[in-house]
């Protein structure tokens, strides 16, 4: 299969600190490839190098066959970037932002108008197009960023933490947008530190940690590398949690109480389940469920750290601050 993005040994140093430390991967046409990693893993720095905003300290990357170090102009023509930090001019309307963007990519006045309308409609922003961007909600602003990145029909789209700071509903909405773009054949590189996001959207995930890629594969492949599954048992009476735990331990199983449920780490849940059921005959059980390994567990096993780390600063509150200063 054709490789649209190919990074080879990318390194970026900031005053001697290696933010990205030899990253190599390739993305096939039409694929959605995720960089999953905690804060400071080097995701944004990687994307900036791929989108020609930063020059690699060493290594090179190719987008549609063009070198990001030697042919940045050609790379810029074929990529769309939705940076982690917002970029739209909030003093202008959504329409202005998209229209100007289209004109910058060489579209004529008529083409630019048609295209602006098309992408604004695609992003569900047509009704708000004539409003100042400053009045948009966080989810709308993210969608506007995507609209601005789509005016020239890029074949590769870089989405740097597109759902950062959004509530669950807007996040789901954005996922649908991303899925729609993928359906249209756009090759997408997405970064995120939400493992559900990587899991829900990606064909393949690269797990990034401290400037390096520690593992690559489809979400299923990655999870298959974590041995075992988890069985959750929830007694009807929460007071019986300890009793359930004890019974199961007497049966030689490894049990923990986690948030009102008893969790059992087992090799294969399907063969253990009958044993659990018969052991718990005398207990009134509300539910029993099997959890397949998640990317979070993969990450923990690979790095010994959790994905979430410290919480993110909401980028929108920062923007709001700037806006209020400006007034």
């Amino acid at each position: 299969m054709e490789e649209v993005v190919k990074a080879g040994g990318l390194v970026k140093e900031f005053n001697g600190f290696r933010a990205v430390d030899g990253v190599s991967f390739s993305i096939r046409r039409g694929e959605l490839f995720s960089l999953l990693g905690p804060n400071g893993a080097g995701k944004t720095t990687t994307i900036k190098m791929l989108s020609t905003l930063l020059t690699p300290t060493s290594g090179d990357a190719y987008v549609e066959g063009y070198s990001v170090t030697r042919e940045p102009g050609k790379v810029r023509r074929v990529i769309g970037l939705v940076p982690q930090d917002l970029t739209a001019d909030d003093e202008m309307t959504g329409w202005d932002n998209v229209y100007i963007q289209a004109r910058l990519y060489g579209l004529s006045r008529g083409e630019a108008q048609a295209r602006a309308r098309e992408v604004l409609e695609l992003m569900g922003l047509w009704d708000a197009a004539r409003r100042r961007v400053g009045t948009y909600s966080g989810g709308m602003r993210r969608r506007l960023e995507i609209a601005m990145s789509l005016v020239h029909e890029p074949s590769v789209l870089f989405l740097d933490e597109p759902t950062l700071g959004l509530d669950v509903q807007s996040r789901r909405g954005l996922w649908r947008v991303v899925e729609e773009l993928k359906r249209r054949g756009v090759t997408i590189l997405l970064t995120t530190h939400y493992m559900e996001e990587a899991e829900a959207l990606s064909d393949r995930v690269a797990i990034m940690h401290r400037g390096r890629i520690v593992e690559v594969g489809s979400p299923e492949e990655l999870k298959a590398r974590v041995r075992g599954e988890t069985i959750y048992v929830e007694p009807l009476d929460p007071g019986e949690l300890e009793r359930v735990k004890n019974i199961l331990e007497e049966n030689g199983l490894e049990a923990h109480v986690i948030e009102g449920r008893v969790a059992l780490r087992v090799e294969r849940a399907d063969t253990v389940l009958p044993q659990v059921a018969s052991a718990l005959q005398g207990v009134r059980v509300k539910s029993m469920s099997i959890a397949k390994p998640s990317l979070e567990e993969v990450f923990i096993q690979l790095t010994g750290e959790t994905l979430s780390g410290e919480e993110h600063v909401d980028p929108f509150s920062f923007r709001r601050m700037i806006r209020s200063v400006r007034r």
Partner: peptide, 12 residues
């Protein structure tokens, strides 16, 4: 500061 320059720098 508002990031618009990034938008311009990544344009061809």
């Amino acid at each position: 500061r508002i990031g618009y320059l990034t938008r311009l720098l990544v344009a061809p």
